[in-house]
Design a protein around this nucleic acid. Sequence first.
DNA 1: CGGCATCCTTAGGGATACTG
DNA 2: CAGTATCCCTAAGGATGCCG
Lengths: 160, 160
Amino acid sequence: MTEPIRMTGVLDPRDGWEAEGCPIAASLELVGTRSAMLILREAYYGATRFDQFTARTGLSDPVVSSRLRELEAAGVLAREDYREPGQRTRKAYRLTEMGEDLLPVIVALQRWGNRWLSPGEKGATEIVHRGCGAEVGVRLECDEGHPVAPDELDLKYRPA
Amino acid sequence: MTEPIRMTGVLDPRDGWEAEGCPIAASLELVGTRSAMLILREAYYGATRFDQFTARTGLSDPVVSSRLRELEAAGVLAREDYREPGQRTRKAYRLTEMGEDLLPVIVALQRWGNRWLSPGEKGATEIVHRGCGAEVGVRLECDEGHPVAPDELDLKYRPA
DNA sequence: CGGCATCCTTAGGGATACTG
DNA sequence: CAGTATCCCTAAGGATGCCG
């Protein structure tokens, strides 16, 4: 065990972040459920139709129905009609830019689960770099393009 | 909206990943609750004592108690006694290596929430690179050190 | 201060059945 | 195929109270 990551720059811990202002809490309100995450996982894996989501997640119809509508309302998914030549109209759920931007969260969870919770290497999946074949993870980087170590983080609070 | 991220390399979608083998699902079993994430957030922000976790997360005592024990049992946190000179013994919860390794998940959620859910810029927090001051996010990278674009991902299934 | 036991409420989620 | 409505069960979480 190493030293805990230290974040500075907040005067009083009670000043604000634990409330609704916290973007982490806000994110969790929307995608913090198991069902939402599993549906997003399948969206990244290429699912677009209702029955694909139910079959591949193992979630029940009503749950998938609710989550899809919530995610659509929030702007994470977009529902569109599409018609292949000679086929009838179908519904497709596609990731929006907002939805795609969540990919690192899923990749980070995947990587962490594989590293620390893998039930004896069996039956697990791996996300790899196409071509290169190496497993893909996630790395801290600031908007200036610098790689960031865990102990170089500051927490900044923007008061209202 | 752009094209969905495509993952290839799995023959039959039903072949395995949706079940217990999925490391994402496994991760969610452990840290997929709001309370677990908020407690981890505070651990990264420097909290170590019981009352810090309750005060800063707004969670009730019993919930904090349960989550702390679960996270400790799983190896994410370690409980240790410490004694400052002249003080009585106190309990401290510290992140293990396994726990620190989850940091990218929290940072990714924070960044996503800030970008897409920000409630009007007010009262929110930001994680910045110390010194440089730029906001910190997360970036896909493979074990070979290559930066990875979202459309360069392959899903690999390792059967039992 | 640092918790756990108890009780209660609500949100997550499954089963079944029904509609366009 | 693509859902919705209803019903029910379980897990998440708050309030209160007690105890070392």
